[in-house]
Computed example of a mutant assay.
Amino acid sequence: MITLRFVYISLSGNTASFVRRMSQYLEERHGDAIAIETVDIKELIREDHSFYAMQGDFVAFLPTYLEGGNGIDNGDQEILTNPLGDFIAFEDNFKNCLGIVGSGNRNFNNQYCLTAKQYSQRFGFPVLDDFEMRGMTDDIKRIAEKIEKLYKI
């Protein structure tokens, strides 16, 4: 059995919905051949649990929440999603991160999924893909296929 691990933070519920629907899709495709573990950073913090070292590879999912700047020449500042970065940095968890999937709103142009791109640069793992808002069925299938290749299933 292969264990897929997804670490995410979701503020509006969009990222949580995507991770849940993609997990269901993968479970339908692979049945008992896989197990899926999810870590909801927001719930981890809410329940006053400490960060911990991840045991095994994982994929991170991150929405984009920024303030200030335009994302190109006059800066920006990540807001609200910083705990995911703190978790990835904790105990060198970034070394087990296979990559990150960003989400956002295309109306924000250059800032669309910018936080995922920044995490990629900061930690040295790839941006695997992105989706807008809650994601569509095609997004789930496309990103699930990339995850299947990463985990060799």
Rank of each mutant, 00 (worst) to 15 (best):
M1S: 07
I2A: 11
L4H: 15
L4K: 13
F6A: 15
Y8A: 01
L11K: 12
L11W: 05
L11V: 10
G13V: 12
A16S: 09
A16P: 11
A16H: 08
S17K: 13
S17M: 08
F18P: 07
V19T: 02
M22W: 07
M22E: 09
S23M: 10
L26Q: 02
E27W: 05
E28Q: 06
R29V: 11
H30N: 14
G31V: 15
I36G: 08
V39K: 01
V39T: 09
I41E: 02
K42M: 04
K42G: 13
I45T: 13
I45Q: 10
S50P: 12
F51N: 09
G56S: 10
D57W: 09
D57S: 15
A60Q: 03
F61W: 06
L62T: 06
L62G: 02
P63S: 13
P63H: 07
P63K: 05
Y65P: 03
E67F: 11
G68C: 13
G68A: 08
G75T: 10
D76F: 14
Q77A: 10
L80R: 15
D86M: 05
F87Q: 00
I88G: 00
I88R: 01
A89M: 06
F90H: 15
F90D: 04
F90T: 00
D92K: 15
C97S: 04
L98F: 08
L98I: 06
L98C: 10
I100F: 03
G102R: 03
S103T: 01
S103Y: 00
G104V: 00
G104I: 00
N105T: 05
N110M: 11
C113W: 03
T115F: 02
A116W: 00
A116H: 01
K117G: 07
Q118M: 08
Q118E: 12
Q118R: 10
P126D: 13
P126V: 13
L128C: 10
L128A: 06
D129A: 10
D129Y: 08
D130F: 01
F131I: 03
E132T: 01
E132R: 00
E132G: 01
R134W: 12
G135S: 09
G135D: 10
D138V: 11
D139Y: 02
A144F: 09
A144R: 11
K146W: 07
K146A: 15
I147T: 15
I147P: 04
K149P: 10
K149E: 14
L150R: 07
Y151R: 04
